[in-house]
């Protein structure tokens, strides 16, 4: 299974494909499920290439996208792309086109669109045989799906407005959080799901959900880059075993890089096994001509550069026997 996608900065290739190729995985036949947790550019880049190579995979995305309003944004992106140079949302459209091609070739039985519009409690995958694994969507909630059309509706361009990139829609409660279970190990993948005030949406809805498999997880991919909004006390008390390995993916762009120092301290109070895929996520920008440096010092209130090193964390656990999973870090990844 491949969940979301990002590109390696130096090679412009989807990291998931590089990793699976390095393991000798036959991507065309052995990747069985591709999931896009949500449509933001930091989760979607390269996903169309991943899916195009995963010829046997089924595709799942958030049921919150299944409305005319989101498809209007998709349609508008065709015109936004050349003007605002934002091609990220077109990855989603490319996947839909690939699904349509597979339909026409008769290699799919579905009538059209994704194989799964993921929502709270929906099983997405089940392997058979010894050590069978299951994947279940834990979100979005019904309330989120009801709200989604109105939220996307606000993003649809209006006559005379300037053509520009689509702003990130927040709060992010449309993400697909996943539960991956095997007889020996369960993992919670938090996507960018946030905690919102409404108990029927976000993490509180998962904690209270009657349709969720009632299991305690052994490891967690921390939600929303370790932000405070992506956290919730009940995740750690209700959904996780104590002191689990926790993995954070940083977000270096924007006003406030994530996780912040406060976020790190908060997460460290949750577990002693906190890892980050790239740390620190930013570094000093490249040195330039002295006149340029002087101007930068005078003008820029802050200036940093995204780290070029994209790290990876590998957790390996037996599918059949209980035991302590092994964790390895590569490149810029490290335990905090």
């Amino acid at each position: 299974m491949v969940v979301d996608s990002c590109l390696n900065n130096t090679r412009a290739q989807p990291i998931a494909l590089e990793y699976l190729n390095s393991l000798g995985v036959d991507i065309a036949t052995q990747v069985r499920l591709v999931v896009l947790t949500h449509w933001h550019d930091d989760h979607i880049r390269g996903s169309a290439k991943v899916f195009s190579e995963a010829l046997s995979a089924r595709f799942a995305c958030s049921a919150a996208l299944r409305n005319r309003e989101f498809f209007s944004i998709l349609a508008a992106s065709e015109q936004v792309r050349p003007v605002a140079r934002d091609g990220s949302i077109s990855e989603f459209e490319s996947i839909l086109e690939e699904l349509h091609r597979r339909n026409k070739r008769g290699v799919r039985r579905s009538q059209g669109g994704p194989d799964f519009w993921a929502q709270d409690g929906l099983p997405l995958f089940q392997s058979i045989g010894t050590g069978s694994a299951t994947v279940t969507a834990l979100s979005p909630s019904s309330q989120t799906m009801t709200d989604a059309a109105a939220r996307f509706g606000k993003l649809i361009p209006k006559v005379s407005s300037q053509i520009k990139r689509f702003p990130r829609s927040t709060p992010n409660d449309q993400s697909v959080a996943l539960l991956v279970q095997s007889p020996a190990c369960s993992i919670l993948l938090g996507a960018d799901l946030e905690t919102v005030g409404d108990p029927q949406r976000g993490w509180q809805a998962i904690v209270d959900s009657p349709s969720r498999p009632q299991v305690m997880c052994d490891a967690i991919k921390v939600a929303h880059h370790g932000s405070e909004n992506g956290d919730h006390d009940d995740i750690w008390s209700t959904l996780m075993h104590p002191d689990p390995p926790a993995f954070v993916t940083p977000y270096a762009s924007g006003k406030k890089p994530l996780p912040s120092e406060d976020d790190i301290q908060r997460l460290k109070s949750r577990t002693r096994q906190l890892y980050c895929t790239t740390w620190p996520p930013t570094r000093r920008p490249p040195r330039r001509n002295s006149s340029v440096q002087r101007t930068l010092r005078e003008m820029a209130l802050s200036h940093r550069s995204v780290s070029k090193r994209v790290g990876q964390i590998r957790l390996r656990a037996s599918m059949t026997q209980q035991g302590i999973p092994t964790i390895q870090t590569f490149e810029g990844a490290r335990q905090l």
Binding site: S72, L74, A75, E78, Q79, H100, S110, G113, W117, I156
Partner: peptide, 20 residues
Amino acid sequence: RAIQRVRQRAEELFELHGQQ
């Protein structure tokens, strides 16, 4: 006109991919 085209295209995309 561009907005009308977007509406029309959105409807096509939804009919093709949004139904199941």
